[in-house]
């Protein structure tokens, strides 16, 4: 019987998990443990709703509402000295509850602290662009759109950035296979040679374990080369490749191993 594979989550899965295995948690601590984070959280809480906040691995994580993001980041930049947006992207939770989780990684250079601002959006919902606040969001939002299909409202140039403009599908969604779909498999052939060339060029060989030692059309076994297209029996004569032909080469000094000099001291 073929194993059932869910269509909405094509990520590789552990083939065996102990049925009593309970995954441990990375410890979370309360925000009050850290004075600076506590003060920052107070300042944010005074103006915006914060759903959850904790410290994990030396960084504060706060969950806010999706529509507050511009305000929160503006407050953090102008009043709390979080002057840099290091990173932003999304996490795909479509298989679980049809949502995306967006995170913004903020850095304060004066306080030497990092905060991760997060919120959830529904599938198909757009986020508010923070490109006006941080120019770096220009490219990260484009990357997020490219990889997940999440659009950003108010972005000046919402186009794909890493994949070609005419690409189909959003590669980092869990429903997108690692090795690409039908469109991806023939993308370059269709574009350069046209669909009718598919039969001539043939499908991609995606099996990494493929070794066809009876193939003399494309690859040659080093030291056992045969003319192209010869049927390989396995009893080929050893045919060592020299740099130069036996009879010497016109106008070029014959290379011999004896006359070469080996440099064994790399520092010389």
């Amino acid at each position: 019987m073929r194993a059932y594979k869910p269509k909405d989550d094509l990520q590789a899965k552990a083939y065996y998990t102990d049925r009593y295995y309970v995954a441990p948690q990375v410890p979370k601590s309360a925000v009050e443990d850290d004075e600076i984070f506590a003060a920052d959280l107070e300042a944010i809480k005074a103006k915006f709703e914060v759903k959850e906040a904790y410290i994990q691995v030396e960084q504060m994580v706060i969950y806010i509402n999706a529509h507050d993001i511009y305000g929160v980041l503006e407050l953090m930049r102008d009043e709390l000295e979080y002057t840099q947006l290091s990173e932003m992207s999304a996490i795909d939770w479509l298989a679980k509850d049809d949502t995306f989780e967006i995170f913004y990684q903020m850095l304060s250079m004066t306080k030497r602290k990092r905060i991760r601002v997060k919120y959830f959006i529904k599938n198909g919902q757009a986020v508010d662009s923070v490109e006006k606040l941080f120019r770096s969001a220009d490219w990260s939002e484009r990357e997020m759109f490219d990889m997940f299909g999440i659009e950003a409202n108010g972005h000046p140039f919402m186009k794909r950035i890493l994949m070609p403009y005419d690409w189909q599908g959003y590669p980092l969604r869990k429903s997108y296979p690692l090795q690409g779909d039908e469109f991806a498999a023939w993308y370059e052939v269709d574009k350069i040679y046209g669909k009718e060339a598919r039969d001539i060029i043939g499908p991609e060989i995606r099996d990494t374990a493929t070794v066809d030692r009876y193939d003399s059309e494309r690859f040659a076994r080093l030291g056992f080369e045969v003319p192209k297209g010869t049927k390989i029996t396995g009893n080929e004569e050893r045919n060592p490749q020299e740099y130069q032909e036996e009879g010497g080469v016109f106008l070029i000094k014959k290379y011999t191993k004896e006359s070469s000099k080996v440099i064994d001291d790399p520092q010389r």
């Binding site: 994949m163 590669p171 997108y176 296979p177 690692l178 090795q179 690409g180 779909d181 991806a184 370059e188 052939v189 350069i192 060029i201 991609e204 060989i205 995606r206 990494t208 494309r218």
Partner: peptide, 18 residues
């Protein structure tokens, strides 16, 4: 040669396809 370790959606599996 073959796409190598990047057996993903974005790489051409061998330049000899082109």
């Amino acid at each position: 040669n073959t796409g190598g370790m990047f057996n993903t959606y974005a790489t051409v599996q061998g330049v000899d396809r082109i």
